[in-house]
Design a protein around this nucleic acid. Structure first.
Lengths: 167, 167
DNA sequence: TTAAACTTTCAATATTTTTTGAAAGTTTAA
DNA sequence: TTAAACTTTCAAAAAATATTGAAAGTTTAA
């Protein structure tokens, strides 16, 4: 496999994987492209490489910046904006974990809490609803605590966590 | 909040959360419904509760069974099929982790391995591609090992893992 | 100021994904 | 067997999501 094949394979795999996890293809591909680019890329560069429109590129770059994993960079003497990705994959993972916790896990935990605190009318169905949502709440809460702890760790956390878990 | 409100809130929240993670709404909602039903439900029951068609119900039940988190049940003397969900949320999490590893993580690891093993032609771009895909490969590999270890653990793993991590 | 160089927005369009419902298929009881 | 009771399949329709591209917006240099 030569460089171009490898690059295309990586970008399209990343796009497909993103899709499975609810991330749109263009966004995942832009991210993949920036991740392996030694130099910052301009909007034109990205449009050209991925064959996508200006609007699409602009919107998805913005989202990636909202996620805190892509950054704007300015070259001196140049008007054009350039973009880079967070290059440290551990930091990348931490940032994604942090954002998913904030955007999804925490709101869900709140709702599970509300639902599991309805008044118990003594019926079997109410008992089951309370029991199951309490169990989900506890699990989500533990996961969130774990994630946030991990997010606060230093860069080698995955390896370290692994070592701890297998002991 | 009364029972019906709580139930609807739970089901629609689960559906919305699923959507964010690449799981279709009907599938997530069927799962939510079964999770809080004290008794197994028939296809008719599910169609009625969620207001979805027979075909949709049938296809999504099949997928949930493929994921190993919903089971067919037969009531004696009845022709109709009934369905239940895995009720133990820890077991549920383990099953989902196991399947996502098998379906997504492992194929991705293989591709990262292929891509990161291209010949180094000495150029900066090739060096960066190799470096980044190697880093992703290592992280994915560690995560997969962690997940699979966790999948092989007993039911309280999340709590236990948490305890280990905070020490 | 102005205009060139650039980015963002958003209504329209295209694409993908989900859902429907009726026909085909299967199983069981009589 | 047959037919009733049920489930599955799949082409068509609907809905949701992503993408385009041109107009509007912004910034900077002169």
């Amino acid at each position: 496999m030569n460089y171009d094949d490898a690059k295309n394979k990586f970008i399209s795999t990343w796009g497909a994987l993103g899709t499975l996890w609810g991330i749109n293809k263009a966004m995942a591909q832009i991210h993949a492209l920036l991740l392996i680019s030694p130099e910052p890329l301009s909007m034109e560069d990205i449009m050209e490489e991925l064959q996508i429109s200006r609007g699409n590129t602009s919107m998805n770059l913005r989202q990636l910046m909202d996620w805190g994993i892509v950054f704007k960079e300015n070259k001196m003497g140049e008007r054009k904006e350039y973009f880079t990705s967070e290059k440290d994959v551990q930091e990348l993972a931490r940032q994604i974990a942090k954002e998913r916790s904030r955007r999804e896990l925490q709101p869900t935990i709140k709702i599970l809490n509300d639902v599991s605190n309805i008044e118990d009318d003594g019926s079997a169905k109410t008992a089951e609803l309370i029991k199951q949502t309490k169990a989900l709440h506890e699990m989500a809460d533990n996961l969130d605590t774990m994630l946030n702890r991990v997010v606060g760790q230093d860069h080698n956390w995955i390896t370290k966590a692994l070592v701890k878990l297998i002991k």
